[in-house]
């Protein structure tokens, strides 16, 4: 069975099985996340189908360049997480920790950009439901665009914050040398979560910004 001081829990036969279980568990968790977002994507598709011109009109009020910038930021952060795992497997823990810090910083940039966009929308009354007060676009369903916009980006933003918490914790562990070699599984599954955050944004960007 497991050698003393190894990372294998008593109910797993070996490290390989344990890593496989962790990966599978994480993929199942990601499946639940995808279906959580699927509810919102369904609402989006339905209301875009019902109110095509309202969605097109409202979409013009958000700055494509900001969304594109955030897309680049998140894609790059995905790269740094993937590299962190790569170097952790080569037991270069300090480099992995540094890459995780870069990822954290990119997550921070994403949130700042999002904050700037939100404050612009709050200022102009581009708001959901009963808060909608943008006089220049008054067609049925105009406020519904902002409802789905804020729900989708808001839920995504919450995931960014949670992901940053996970990455910070992993960065500390990597810095202390807790992971390395074959035992880089925590970095791998934490990275999977962050990639999901990126994946959701890859779809949100064209759906919200490029109508």
């Amino acid at each position: 069975m497991s050698a003393p001081g190894s990372h294998v829990a008593h109910h797993f036969p070996d490290l390989e099985t344990q890593a496989h279980a962790a990966r599978l568990g994480m993929w199942l968790f990601l499946a639940t996340e995808v279906l959580l977002f699927a509810g919102l994507f369904t609402a989006y598709a339905l209301y875009r189908m019902l109110y095509p011109s309202a969605f097109a009109g409202a979409s013009k009020l958000i700055e494509t360049s900001m969304g594109a910038l955030n897309t680049v930021v998140l894609i790059t952060s995905s790269l740094t997480v993937a590299l962190a795992f790569h170097y952790s497997k080569e037991s270069r823990s300090k480099l992995a920790a540094a890459l995780l810090l870069v990822t954290l910083a990119l997550g921070g940039v994403f949130l700042v950009v999002k904050y700037l966009e939100y404050s612009h929308h709050f200022h102009d009354g581009h708001l959901p439901g009963r808060f909608y007060s943008y006089a220049a676009l008054q067609v049925p369903g105009a406020s519904m665009f902002w409802t789905v916009y804020f729900l989708m980006t808001g839920l995504h933003g919450i995931h960014v914050v949670i992901g940053m918490g996970v990455l910070a914790w992993l960065a500390v562990g990597a810095w202390r040398g807790s992971y390395g070699g074959a035992y880089s599984t925590p970095l791998e599954v934490g990275g999977l979560y962050w990639h999901l955050v990126d994946l959701v944004w890859i779809f949100l960007f064209p759906l919200l910004y490029l109508i």
Binding site: P128, G129, S143, M144
Partner: peptide, 12 residues
């Protein structure tokens, strides 16, 4: 909050 996701009066 009354976002109107399911409210026909707000397009839901």
């Amino acid at each position: 909050f009354g976002f109107g996701v399911f409210d026909p009066a707000r397009g839901g």
